[in-house]
Simulated scan of single mutants.
Amino acid sequence: MDRLEAMAMLLTVTEQGSLSAAGRLLHVPLATLSRKISDLETLLGARLLLRTTRKISLTDAGIAYVAAARRILEQVEEAERAAAGEFTEPKGELAITAPLLFGRLHVLPLVAEFLATYPAITVRLLLLDRNVDLIDDHVDMAVRIGKLPDSTMVATQVGAIRTVTCATPALLAAHGVPQAPADLLRYPCVTVDTPMPTPSWRFRQPDSGAALDIAIVPRLTLSTAEAAADAGVRGVGVVRLLHYQVAAPVRAGALQLVLAPFEPDSAPVHLVHAARGQMPLKMRRFLDFAAPRLRAALKAIGAGLPSAEA
């Protein structure tokens, strides 16, 4: 039997929580997956998994074996990278993920420049408005917007992004310029239907810093921030988005910022990668290449907007 293959299958089963989910992910028939793990248990002379109709769980022996198997497979992967020259020469595939609109506007251009600089590297760029698991999805580096949870990941901050509220000059002329967040309750508003929607827009009291939640009743709800910005430009209502999402229409005068003193704290932007042994040169080169360019891009976006202290 291929012991490394069986180890990898066992890890996938434990990570997915069931044989059927692991089989779908690996594109392996359920019977084949079950047999491979049974063969591994026979070889070891120990039960690794407890199977029920609802779920699987690890035995005490299985917990220890899975931890050891994970270390072994990581060492094998690192040895393969070393043998392929990834630690001595920047080459191979680099998988990167970023939010959809931010990635298209600001990550794709620097990736194109990076590829022209390093012809031996290829890039798989995943533009998604959800956070992928870097290890499970085999992604080398991620651009993350917002506070990061505690983890073993290594993060390099490249800037911060404001959350801004804006509307067309015509809408503000018709309704007046709101002086406080509560004034928005009498304005038409446009919202984005996110994976974790909230009925409120959060602001911050400028004097105390206390959170201030306003229960917005949207006139229009859209599925993407890009569409919400377009609706705002068309005068449908007030929009509240990350500042890079409306930077162009604000610079052009199509949208006007309001309630800047009440903005919540800016969201940090990081380049994130897993902390697993020596970093391949392709990742080091990209980190060194991308970090200063993203810092400059975020600084330029911010420079084009009125101050939050206004």
Rank of each mutant, 00 (worst) to 15 (best):
2 D>C: 02
67 A>P: 07
113 E>C: 09
265 D>K: 11
168 T>Y: 05
292 P>Q: 09
148 L>G: 00
229 A>I: 07
115 L>Y: 08
37 I>L: 15
95 A>F: 14
23 G>D: 03
263 E>W: 03
62 G>R: 02
121 I>H: 08
189 C>R: 04
17 G>R: 15
107 V>Y: 14
194 T>G: 03
200 S>N: 11
100 L>K: 13
72 I>Y: 10
21 A>I: 05
61 A>H: 10
24 R>P: 03
31 A>W: 08
226 E>H: 13
52 T>R: 15
289 F>Q: 07
20 S>I: 08
50 L>F: 05
146 G>M: 06
176 G>S: 02
227 A>C: 03
196 M>L: 08
45 G>Y: 08
81 R>W: 14
60 D>M: 11
105 L>P: 01
140 D>E: 14
23 G>M: 08
190 V>E: 01
174 A>H: 08
235 G>P: 09
217 V>N: 07
226 E>Q: 12
72 I>S: 06
169 P>V: 05
145 I>E: 04
221 T>V: 11
63 I>D: 09
82 A>R: 15
62 G>F: 09
46 A>H: 11
169 P>E: 04
55 K>V: 00
91 K>D: 00
146 G>L: 04
9 M>K: 12
103 G>D: 07
303 A>P: 02
133 D>C: 07
194 T>L: 14
91 K>E: 00
205 Q>S: 01
60 D>W: 11
54 R>K: 15
23 G>S: 13
95 A>P: 12
42 T>S: 09
106 H>I: 05
2 D>H: 12
249 P>R: 03
291 A>C: 04
252 A>H: 06
296 A>F: 07
16 Q>N: 13
10 L>W: 06
286 F>S: 04
186 R>N: 03
131 N>Y: 14
87 F>S: 01
12 T>L: 10
66 V>G: 05
167 A>F: 08
126 L>V: 13
57 S>W: 08
221 T>M: 13
196 M>S: 03
304 G>T: 11
307 S>G: 10
60 D>K: 15
82 A>W: 14
150 D>Q: 09
222 L>M: 10
35 R>W: 04
49 L>A: 10
138 H>D: 12
173 A>T: 04
28 V>D: 00
193 D>P: 04
